[in-house]
Amino acid sequence: MISDIDIKNVIADSVMGFDVSAMDNDQDFSNLGLDSLDHLTILLSLEETFEIKKIPDEDIDKCRSISGILDYLSNE
């Protein structure tokens, strides 16, 4: 089971210089200063790290926050 801590660790490894310690699970990544390329990197790192099947393009907007990613994964 992937936790919010796991996702924060992936974000910390994927986005250089980004501080995950104060991240709120419900905050949209774009409101935290993460751009579209950071978002792609985070999703790819999640897929690789946890061997998740590729999140379809039509679902990536559901995965724009830690809570969104956890919801998406729990429904898959």
């Binding site: 390329l37 792609l40 990197t41 790819l44 690789e48 590729k54 393009d57 990536i60």
Partner: peptide, 12 residues
């Protein structure tokens, strides 16, 4: 261009 697909392809 599907940027995500190209990015993932290159990275992997």
């Amino acid at each position: 261009m599907n940027g995500r697909t190209v990015f993932n392809f290159a990275a992997m």
